[in-house]
Nucleic acid binder design. Structure first.
Lengths: 109, 109
DNA sequence: CCAGTATATTGACCTCAGTCGATAGGGGTT
DNA sequence: AACCCCTATCGACTGAGGTCAATATACTGG
């Protein structure tokens, strides 16, 4: 449940600044793939709207089954965009704004 | 070969600003899906590095077959990220910085 | 018009990802 | 302990997408 590649956060081989080697491209593509799903974008938006949200409060708004929600939170968490913390029986999710900022920077002109 | 949805360019239902309806999420996901491929990211980076690049100059650096390159340019073009112009037998591609900026804005905190 | 070159499309293959039902694991409550 | 609730994993199905060989289309030059 930990972010795997963090080459993105450090600094900035961006799409605008030419070379963009295969490794950087692959890394950036992974994070973008995590973002490139409407359910996950809405999930992210919901979590961002409050400070913390538990998984059980996501099924309703997303209109997806519990396993599906769990799958999406895992994908976002692996991408470092979401961080989960277990408290009692619930898992509370919050967004990782720095990660999102890194993506914006990597897309920067 | 024309961008299809441009709801992104107008204004800003961002991931940070909560509601993010299903339609906006789907639209944003489409553009992000176009970006979420290492070959296309490198393609975009190459085109951005010069002002214009013709398809024939992409096969080499990308190490992909001609149909594959054509496929990727089409995907990026459909997403509004790349614009192609046929001059003689060549197609010259240039990036659409505004579109990329719109994506960054949609991802904005 | 014919030949040659650049690009687009087709068809097929293969892998991957989204989805859900069923089940397992973790953690409270009584 | 037994029970219930929340979350994670598994297995299976399905659809989407990256890739290339083969073919088609578009354009130029002779």
């Amino acid at each position: 449940m930990l972010p795997e590649g963090s080459g993105l956060a450090v600094c900035c081989p961006s799409v605008g600044e030419p070379p963009l080697g295969e490794a950087e491209a692959a890394e950036l593509a992974k994070v973008l793939a995590a973002l490139a799903d409407p359910v996950r974008l809405r999930l992210l938006s919901i979590v961002a709207s409050r400070d913390e949200v538990c998984s059980c409060d996501l099924e309703g708004p997303l209109a997806k089954s519990q396993p599906t929600v769990s799958h999406h939170t895992k994908v976002l968490s692996n991408a470092g965009l979401l961080v989960g913390q277990r408290r009692g029986r619930w898992v509370w999710w919050r967004v990782e704004p720095a990660r999102l900022a890194a993506v914006r920077r990597a897309l920067g002109a």
